[in-house]
Write a protein that binds this DNA or RNA. Structure first.
Lengths: 110, 110
DNA sequence: CATATTAATCGTAATATTACGATTAATATT
DNA sequence: AATATTAATCGTAATATTACGATTAATATG
């Protein structure tokens, strides 16, 4: 048995978990930071920047693309990745809303 | 091979990934939402609330505790869990800072 | 056309995660 | 003291993740 029981939860919970999962690995955070720093997308330079192999970077990029946080445009031989700002904002709003709940609804115990 | 190459990344990247991982499963988000809603900590009622077994809930609680986002106080037979507000704020600041970068440093491409 | 570069994918392996039932240790209740 | 309740842990199993090298398909360059 085991492994993901995605249904039975609310859409918000599932979406929030999806975005959180996308940034739940240091390599993916490093990739996103790199994409933000170098505004002009950048393609395979990510591999030079990170301490992991090309195939592993490619996998992380695939996951980030699947989450929606980034998109990739083919540009000749190379691929140009960049933040998908619309999705990024959605993630920001969802995560922000989640973490601000505790400030509004102060927990009084323990 | 495989599995975690945690070093070689910055402390911030690793910490951010840690918090993100903590909330990367709908069950854990549901648990946190429940703990926030019911201010008075609550103990085993989480099991009744969620569509997963007691042992699985216990595992998720263990992970949440490991991340620091919650703490658990023994209260007789039962255990009282609640948000660790200090850690929660730290996570909020880290995540908030991360997602706001793109707003300041607008990406122009693709 | 031959060769180089780029990035995805495949195959493989190690490890982590998710989940459950069963057991256990602890405190409460009868 | 016997029994019930609570929540952690153990054992087990399925699946997912992380990682790498090798291969592949594509475009670019000589």
């Amino acid at each position: 048995m085991g492994a993901s029981k995605t249904s039975e939860y609310t859409k918000k919970e599932i979406e929030l978990a999806k975005y959180a999962k996308a940034i739940s690995h240091p390599a993916r955070i490093a990739i996103l930071n790199f994409l933000i720093k170098k505004k002009s997308c950048i393609c395979g330079d990510i591999v030079d920047e990170l301490p992991i192999s090309q195939s592993t970077v490619s996998q992380h990029l695939k996951e980030l693309k699947a989450s929606g946080l980034i998109k990739g445009n083919i540009d000749g031989v190379s691929v140009c990745y960049c933040i998908d700002e619309k999705e990024w904002k959605k993630a920001n709003v969802l995560l922000g809303g989640f973490f601000e709940k505790i400030i509004i609804n102060k927990s009084v115990c323990c």
